[in-house]
């Protein structure tokens, strides 16, 4: 009797403190998500809800049998995710090691490297679009270096690498901070012991540092993978999926389907598929890296 009362009191408190956040979460996230299951099987055009006709599996059939652009954009997104996750994490780890040494400017540098993450993606995209199309062109004219003379963002490959560069530049600073926290948590005596045992730098890195910062690696890989897979704002402001549709990410493809082609039903179906894809990929990744975590 007493126990249940305490339990109830606990629940009461939790509900009192939770309800404002819960209310918004339910109305803004959960409800539309559940409604999405319904709309993904209609031909809703985004305007007249009362005219949305139930079409059964037609949208799904279309996606799987007759929508090359969706699969092209999936392929693009996978390529983009693999390249940028590796690049961002390698760069972040390098920066973290660099800033763990006794550099005089390390506090300033940490702030500078973290800064791009504070600026919103849309804004970054427009700034970099200017740098790529105007800045690079000008540098190319002055110096004659062929790298800068490429038609940046004007061809599929420069568009792809342009997106990778900006994404890595934006995320590396954030990941660096997490890695620094991980590195700072490693007990000094373990490293000293390894050194006395005669471990060289590569061995030290492979057998001491990496296993001990595995929790940080798990988090960083999770964040970069899911962010790269969901990349939309950079895509919108930097290339708009162009030239043609060659740099269209999955998120952009969904946006275009719903808001440009006015097929919200089909767009919703794609978005649900997208949700499951992101979930599966990130959960698998976390599960794999989690198993490798050790404690000192």
């Amino acid at each position: 009797m007493r126990k249940t009362l305490r339990l109830q009191r606990g629940w009461g408190q939790q509900i009192i403190f939770l309800w404002p956040a819960l209310l918004f979460f339910l109305t803004i996230v959960v409800t539309p998500f559940i409604l999405g299951f319904y709309y993904s099987s209609t031909d809703w055009n985004g305007l007249d809800l009362n005219k949305a006709v139930w079409t059964g599996a037609a949208n799904w059939k279309r996606i799987f049998t007759n929508d090359d652009k969706f699969w092209e954009s999936l392929l693009f997104t996978l390529r983009f995710t693999i390249v940028s996750v590796i690049a961002a994490n390698v760069l972040a780890l390098l920066l973290a090691f660099l800033l763990m040494t006794t550099l005089k400017t390390k506090k300033v540098l940490r702030t500078i490297f973290f800064m791009p993450n504070v600026i919103g993606g849309i804004l970054l995209g427009y700034i970099w679009q200017f740098i790529f199309t105007k800045g690079f062109a000008t540098i190319g004219d002055i110096t004659g270096i062929s790298f800068f003379k490429l038609p940046w963002l004007g061809t599929p490959s420069t568009g792809f690498w342009g997106l990778v560069i900006v994404f890595v530049w934006q995320t590396a600073g954030y990941m660096m901070v997490i890695y620094i926290a991980g590195l700072a948590g490693i007990p000094k005596d373990l490293i000293e012991a390894a050194k006395i045992d005669g471990a060289r730098a590569p061995q030290l890195f492979k057998s001491v540092y990496v296993p001990l910062i595995m929790p940080a690696i798990t988090i960083c890989l999770f964040l970069t993978t899911s962010n790269a897979f969901k990349m939309f704002d950079l895509n919108l402001s930097l290339t708009k999926g162009g030239p043609g549709t060659s740099t269209q990410s999955l998120a952009y493809n969904i946006y275009a389907e719903a808001l440009i082609n006015n097929r919200y039903g089909l767009g919703t179906a794609k978005a649900l598929l997208f949700f499951f894809a992101v979930s599966i990929i990130t959960v698998t990744q976390v599960w794999i890296t989690k198993r490798k975590e050790v404690s000192a």
């Binding site: 061809t155 599929p156 999926g241 162009g242 030239p243 043609g244 060659s246």
Partner: peptide, 8 residues
């Protein structure tokens, strides 16, 4: 989109 690809 098609014209952009042709332009490129």
């Amino acid at each position: 989109a098609a014209m952009q690809e042709y332009l490129g």
